[in-house]
Each structure stands twice: as structure tokens, then as C-alpha cells.
């Protein structure tokens, strides 16, 4: 069922990662991604794996849940790996058959590419989506980007849109499920037939879904006005974000992480890419 999608889901908890300031988490996440792409030696990759595992432990999330986050990108991972294995040239020939020649460099770069993507997905999942509520995330983005307001960029409006989208995604998924079932009961068939036929079968789902979304939007707008919403000006927030010691500490650790990657690259230069 549609409800089972897990990518981008928040798992409430009480780990240090859960309690970090969401703004800090965004900064850390960006730094972590930079760190991943800085890795270019075998030792650095091993260090990266160790750090990712450490993050997973700190987050106190079940390993299964974290690994499930990779599921949606499995195709991309396999595709990149295959691409690297077969099309990458090199010096050390491992295996040759017909027009295909596989080099050691191809295999190693495939492995490291896979590590990169997996570390990237798991890292962002752990640091951001799994341990930060969507609302905290939008809130953090709004605050981080708020200086842009002086350039007349509608940061608040953008954040509000994000919040509402997040709020209504489960509702709309449920509704899609319901409409699909209702049309199934009227003889619609979504699982057989050619691609064109299947696309056509979606019309009876999409039209009611759009109409209901417009109706919802309309009602929500009235409800928001009734609750005195008038854009970002003059608005206060209930949750004030304050940087705590742990936030500074984690930024320091992140800086250390990047420095370590650079140092390892330099002093254990078994280059692979």
C-alpha cells in the first residue's frame, strides 16, 4: 500500500541527535556531505564507514530502519556500480571476455561509489530526516534563510507552504488509496494493460484527487484567516531555538571530522579515484 513509504520519515526519539538544534543539524549535514566527497583514499573511506556506523549508534535508531532508507536508491546504486565496473578503463586487467574488459580500478571505484552513495543516504537520513521532525526542519530552513528576506525573497511563505505540504501528504496518500479502491470497486484496473491504458486508468483517480485538494486548500485558507493568519509580518513563534553546549560541541566534532578526512587523505594516500 501507498502508506508504507518510509523515505523521509521522522522517528521520534531522545538521542543527542534528536535534541540537537535543527539549524545546526542542517549545517552538520552539509559538512558531512562535503566530507564524503573529500574522501579519496582507502583509509579515508574506512574512516567514513566507521563514522557513519558511529552516527547510527548515537541516533539509537534500529539498524533495520536505517538500512530501509537505502531501499529507494538501490536502483541508482546498482546502476552506478555497473557503470563503473564495465566502463571504467584502467591499467590492471582483471578479466576479459569478448568485448568486455574489467579492470581493478573499475571494481574498486564501483565499491567506493557505492560506499559514497550509501553513506550519503544513511547520513542525511540519520542526521536530518529520521531524527528531526519535518516541522523543525522547515522551521530551521526558514530561520537559516531569513536573512534573504532583505532581498524580498518570501522565505516565510515558502516555509509555510512546506509545512502545509508536509501536513497534507499523509492525508492525500490516504485519500488516493480510498479513491483508487472506490474506482476498483467500479471495475477500474490499475495493474494490467499497456502503459497507455494504465495511465488512462489513473484519470478517474487524479481528477477527484485534484478537486478534493482544491476544496481542502480553499477550506484551509478560510480556517487560517479565521485564526488571524496574515503572512509572516508581526508573527512570533512558540518554540525559540537556542544553541546549547551540545550544539557547539557537535559543530566542533564535525570540523574535526573534515580535518581528519583531509589528513588521512594526505598521510595514507592509497589513492583509488
Amino acid at each position: 500500500m501507498l502508506k508504507d513509504i518510509t523515505l523521509g520519515q521522522f522517528f521520534p526519539g531522545n538521542s543527542v541527535l534528536h535534541r540537537l538544534d535543527p539549524r545546526v543539524k542542517i549545517v552538520i549535514c552539509i559538512a558531512y556531505i562535503v566530507g564524503i566527497f573529500l574522501c579519496n583514499s582507502l583509509a579515508a573511506y574506512i574512516f567514513l564507514i566507521a563514522m557513519t556506523v558511529l552516527l547510527m549508534l548515537i541516533s539509537q535508531l534500529p539498524v533495520k530502519t536505517v538500512l530501509k532508507g537505502i531501499q529507494p536508491v538501490v536502483v541508482i546504486i546498482i546502476f552506478t556500480a555497473v557503470l563503473n565496473v564495465f566502463w571504467r578503463g584502467g591499467e590492471t586487467e582483471l578479466f576479459s571476455f569478448w568485448i568486455i574488459t574489467i579492470y581493478l580500478e573499475g571494481v574498486t571505484s564501483a565499491i567506493f561509489m557505492m560506499i559514497r552513495i550509501i553513506a550519503l543516504v544513511i547520513g542525511t537520513c540519520i542526521i536530518l530526516t529520521y531524527t528531526t521532525s519535518p516541522i523543525a526542519l522547515t522551521d530551521a530552513i526558514e530561520r537559516l534563510l531569513s536573512p534573504l528576506r532583505i532581498f524580498k525573497i518570501p522565505v516565510h511563505e515558502f516555509a509555510m507552504m512546506m509545512t502545509i505540504a508536509l501536513r497534507f501528504i499523509p492525508t492525500l496518500i490516504e485519500e488516493t488509496d480510498k479513491i483508487m479502491n472506490a474506482q476498483k470497486a467500479r471495475g477500474s484496473d490499475f495493474s494490467t494493460g499497456s502503459l497507455a491504458e494504465r495511465a488512462k486508468a489513473l484519470v478517474p483517480v487524479l481528477v477527484p484527487l485534484f478537486i478534493s485538494s482544491f476544496r481542502r486548500a480553499d477550506e484551509l485558507a478560510v480556517a487560517m484567516e479565521c485564526r488571524c493568519y496574515r503572512g509572516g509580518s508581526g508573527r512570533t513563534r512558540m518554540t525559540q531555538l537556542h544553541l546549547a553546549k551540545r550544539d557547539f560541541f557537535s559543530i566542533l566534532l564535525t570540523a574535526l571530522f573534515i580535518a581528519s578526512v583531509l589528513l588521512i587523505n594526505q598521510y595514507f594516500p592509497i589513492y583509488v579515484v
Binding site: 521532525s133 501536513r167 493568519y229 512570533t236 513563534r237
Partner: peptide, 25 residues
């Protein structure tokens, strides 16, 4: 009931009105 709740967390939603009114945190 669905079309009048704005936020993804119950207490954030309840805070929506007073936030619009500019009430201190």
C-alpha cells in the same frame, strides 16, 4: 477536521493562532 489543522504536530498547530497574533513565546 482535516482541513483546519495547519501544522504537522498537534501543539504546533494549537500555537498557530497565538503566533499569528504576535503573542510572546
Amino acid at each position: 477536521p482535516d482541513n483546519q489543522l495547519v501544522a504537522t504536530i498537534v501543539e504546533e498547530d494549537v500555537a498557530f493562532g497565538p503566533e499569528n497574533l504576535g503573542v510572546p513565546p
